[in-house]
Amino acid sequence: MKNQESAISIQNLTKYYGKHKAVDGLSLNVERGDIFGFLGPNGAGKSTTIRSLLGLIAFQEGEAEILGMDVKTHHREILGKIGYMPSEAMFYPSMKVKEVIRFAADMRKLDCTAEAQMLCERLQVDQNKRIEELSLGNRKKVSIVCAMQHKPELFIFDEPTSGLDPLMQAEFFKLIMEYNKQGTTCFLSSHVLSEIKKYCKHAAIIREGKLICTDTVENLTRTNTKRIRMIRDGKEEDFVFKGDLNQLFAGFAGHDIEDIVIEEPELDEIFMHYYEEEAK
């Protein structure tokens, strides 16, 4: 497996915790330049997949490459080219923000002063505060600066927006778009469906360690699932319909239909649709 075109290429990745399969034969491909959403509820295996890719935990079966390099044999080279933001943004409590940002740059043997300054200004990060004084949201902002300041080829973000206020979430995605225009690939794990729909080009849905589907966000949302709002026999109804619309209309015979609106469902409804399909 040597896929130079892919930013991330995973084949049959399996990770056990004891006897429990946390990730079960996952295969996935993320093209360079993409903004890829990795969707799944808590405990679906998103973080385990990411932590396996980064070498924080060892996986038992399968292969994975990042930027054309095997994650097991080129661990250091890969880490040099990515910016990672963990779901828990934790740093050394006694350090000042500027010391943490400097430490992150020094660990990469880079001078990222200018980029870090720009990011701190845009994200409104107070560099003189100590980490122990920061809220989760402010720690997340420090984590974003540490992940972006060295302008990596690939971002890997694990639930990046939890704890960020809406203004900062918007600024964060604005930054991602800007870096993406310069060629940076973004792999974004989330359970917030709206942000995936709004910002991602492709997405994958994972459940209980297994990949349920992967496609463009546009195709994923183009299903035979429709949201129906109607007034039937004087009663308001609002439901998600899956299947042939002719069957739906046939069921209306003998009923008084005052009004009907058929629209594309929200992404979370589609998400549930894929889950239910998989469960069958």
């Binding site: 924080l56 990672y84 963990p86 934790m90 050394y92 660990m107």
Partner: peptide, 14 residues
């Protein structure tokens, strides 16, 4: 213990 292992171990340092 301090949940900083992810921060420390995702730099290009073995």
């Amino acid at each position: 213990a301090g949940h900083t292992s992810e921060f420390l171990n995702t730099f290009p340092v073995s």
